[in-house]
Design a protein around this nucleic acid. Structure first.
Lengths: 251, 251
DNA sequence: GCATCGATTTGACTTGCGTCAATGTCCCCG
DNA sequence: CGGGGACATTGACGCAAGTCAAATCGATGC
């Protein structure tokens, strides 16, 4: 069932981990009264894994940021072919000021908590508070870079390289939490089903499965159960991904 | 030869067609003294078809917008595989405030004139003039939508659909200049070589050529010479593109 | 512990697009 | 007006990834 009731704000860190538009970064520059403006406007919604947050074309009168969990943005063709065009991780922003309807399906792939703002007051606040617009511009530019990196993957990489790239990106975003950079093994939990991976990578589910098996067979990764992956040598994985050594994503 | 000298600003329309960040749109909202601020800062550079404007990784101390002509943003893998990740048409903006180096190769595919601003003063002006940042945010969001549309194309469309989509998009952007919408034939000039098309669509040059021939054979398009294309029935082309009927791109 | 059901893996076969290699066409410039 | 060179088309063939189908795994409830 869809839970629209406001949750108790769970402040997990002293400086606003649960706030919109990567609030931690905004906070550093904001005046306190701007923050209190924010406080009055926000509300929380939570979703279970697999639930749809909003359908493409639906009226969308809020903007939001992910507090915990992972969501995807998906585009669908008339005949059902699907392509994931964005991953939303905690602190990522959804919604476009100045647009009435959602452009993509947004789906929770894990249990998900989002922090929402009604669009009208949010837009008003953007006008009143230049910092917020600037932060949003920075974030949008980062997303644009990520989308373009993904265009290279979709257009030019082999299935094996696509899988290696995806695992590397997930590992890197996990890792940024605190991880010895070079050499040591990395262990991650895949937040996506094989099907979701295939929709993100422009492959079929079977090809994803086969390539994961191949990487396992070749010792590039180890797999425990279905979702847990160990990367004994991260540089090896990067080589397999086809990116140049430091390769990759901002964020 | 690369021409770095400032050109005479060629004002082609009364309201600033040659100005940065879709200046026409900015103008409507700007105070005149903001405009005069802009006037002092800008300079022009022109390039011949095929010339590189800037290489990925190069220091980039300006931002710019396209005045006339077409340029591409390209990403390259170590082994030489290339993917075009953006098309720059007149009024499109290049460069990222707050970034030191170029993230992509920028190449002129036709003769090209760009209107440039040194980055530092431009950034200062953005702080002073919120409208500009807002406009830039809107434009970046449009580009992000376009990039995501392209991800669907790259990940899920067939070669034939890719070609049809590309022709439709070029036609639509040409057409927005003034064109009876429904039914009537549209005639366009392809601004890209077959190779550039292949790099944009994630195909090989041969496949591009074969699919153009197939669309010609099937009466979806007519081709005069190498570059001129007539579309007798635009709706037919849209069907072939795999997009839903109104399908498509903002901008 | 066992049945159940969705998620995943694996196998056999097909196919769309890539690769390699001629051949053809446009257009510029003398 | 007639080469020359870049750009484009066409053909033959191979392979990576898709399709269809059948096991197998793993969590969950009984």
């Amino acid at each position: 069932m869809q839970n629209t009731t406001a949750l108790e704000p769970k402040i997990t860190s002293p400086d606003c981990d649960d706030c919109p538009i990567r609030h931690r970064a905004v906070c550093a520059r904001c005046e306190s009264d701007e923050l209190s403006q924010l406080e009055g406007m926000k509300y929380y919604r939570s979703f279970e894994a697999g639930q749809t947050v909003i359908w493409s074309g639906d009226r969308m009168d809020f903007v939001a940021s992910v507090v915990t969990g992972i969501a995807t943005l998906t585009q669908t063709m008339e005949d059902g072919r699907r392509q994931i065009v964005g991953l939303l991780l905690p602190s990522d922003f959804v919604g476009r000021p100045g647009r009435e309807t959602a452009a993509y399906d947004v789906t929770a792939t894990t249990d998900l908590v989002m922090c929402c703002f009604r669009k009208k007051p949010f837009e008003a606040m953007m006008l009143a508070t230049p910092h917020i617009g600037q932060r949003l511009l920075e974030m949008t530019l980062d997303e644009l870079d990520a989308a373009r990196e993904w265009m290279l993957l979709l257009g030019r990489k082999t299935a094996r390289e696509k899988i290696a790239s995806l695992i590397a990106i997930i590992a890197r975003r996990h890792a940024s939490l605190a991880m010895p950079r070079k050499g040591s093994a990395v262990e991650i939990e895949l937040p996506l089903t094989r099907e979701a991976m295939s929709e993100y990578l422009g492959l079929t589910l079977e090809t994803v499965s086969r390539q994961i098996s191949a990487l396992k067979r070749d010792g590039v990764i180890e797999v425990q159960g279905k979702r847990r992956v160990t990367i004994p040598d991260f540089d090896r994985l990067l080589e397999e991904s086809g990116d140049d050594s430091d390769g990759g994503f901002p964020v």
